[in-house]
Write a protein that binds this DNA or RNA. Sequence first.
DNA 1: AATTTTAACTAACACCTGTTAGTTTAAGCA
DNA 2: TGCTTAAACTAACAGGTGTTAGTTAAAATT
Lengths: 189, 189
Amino acid sequence: MKPQNRKDEIVKAAAKLFKKKGYSAVTMRDLATALGIKAASLYNHINSKQELLNTIIISIAEEFTNEMNSIKNADTATAQKLTDIVELHIKIASENTYGMASLNNDWMHLEDQLEYYLTLRNGYEEDFRNIIKAGIKHKEIVDENPEIILFSLLSTLRSLYLWIPKKEALDKNSLSKSLSHILIKGINS
Amino acid sequence: MKPQNRKDEIVKAAAKLFKKKGYSAVTMRDLATALGIKAASLYNHINSKQELLNTIIISIAEEFTNEMNSIKNADTATAQKLTDIVELHIKIASENTYGMASLNNDWMHLEDQLEYYLTLRNGYEEDFRNIIKAGIKHKEIVDENPEIILFSLLSTLRSLYLWIPKKEALDKNSLSKSLSHILIKGINS
DNA sequence: AATTTTAACTAACACCTGTTAGTTTAAGCA
DNA sequence: TGCTTAAACTAACAGGTGTTAGTTAAAATT
């Protein structure tokens, strides 16, 4: 119905500010100033500050969930699934750097949608865990504690949003190759 | 002079709240309530909310800097230095889980001490980078982009504070061994 | 040309923020 | 016992918070 153009601009500006200062430290007056308007004018397009956070975080969380579904159901070896996951994180972190910051740092300020978000996150982690466990079972992955492996991989992948924007020189394909290599085969020579 | 006992309790309670909600979302009334007193009473012991954040973050940053100095100057092989760094992060994340959250997520809200903090952090990362580069030079580490290796290792190590408190079953020694193994030798079998 | 819609505005609200000033209470010490 | 100190308290402040109500001006639609 309504053209959501202006609303999208507001969401984008909000995500950018949320990355820089965190959700709680950003005021609606900050956001309005960044867009060159007055705070009250924002409410012609959005319903609340909370809604901005919900929109930003949930859309990314759902994207992760959907893509993970494809990866886990594909008929591929563990190493390929892991590489696919690395690529997925690189893609989302590249396309939505600002949103990833909110997802990582401000998810606890979700209110109505907090429970839903946690369901999505737990499902994603459970799928990831099962891929690792299957890999260990089929001797494709070293027999270490799967929780430690999961933690280690997820920590790096979740932090990509901090790092990718600083290294624009690096193209996504070679980053994906190098990172997969380092995470899977280690750094030992 | 003054016994700092009560002040320490306040700093500790603050760090705990800052981890849960972030610096900006924690009010002095929240903090006081957590300690069973009124907000104004806090000011018998501390000078400002800002001072709490400074105290929490800077003490940890200095600890990292000091320990990194020992590690880099030791006459040890690259693999040993990396293991030492893993152990250092595990130690600090175990002893100061709450503080690590502030250091990771709220450093941008430092004001007077922001510049000093960034100097410490850049120094730490530069030392880490040089250890990796030397390892590559001496063929102890695979010849991948040192920036990617640094990013990957640091991401995992910086996230330990989120994970260690959830896995109290695991003792620090075996965690250190497993994690070093995974980070250095990879997860390939 | 008349009407509706879009998107800005000003003014104001009720409440929350960090912090200060001055006071009270009880314990430790002379 | 009288004095000092530690650590709480109440009351208040000046400014910031998200948000609402009602208005205006220009663009789009009829």
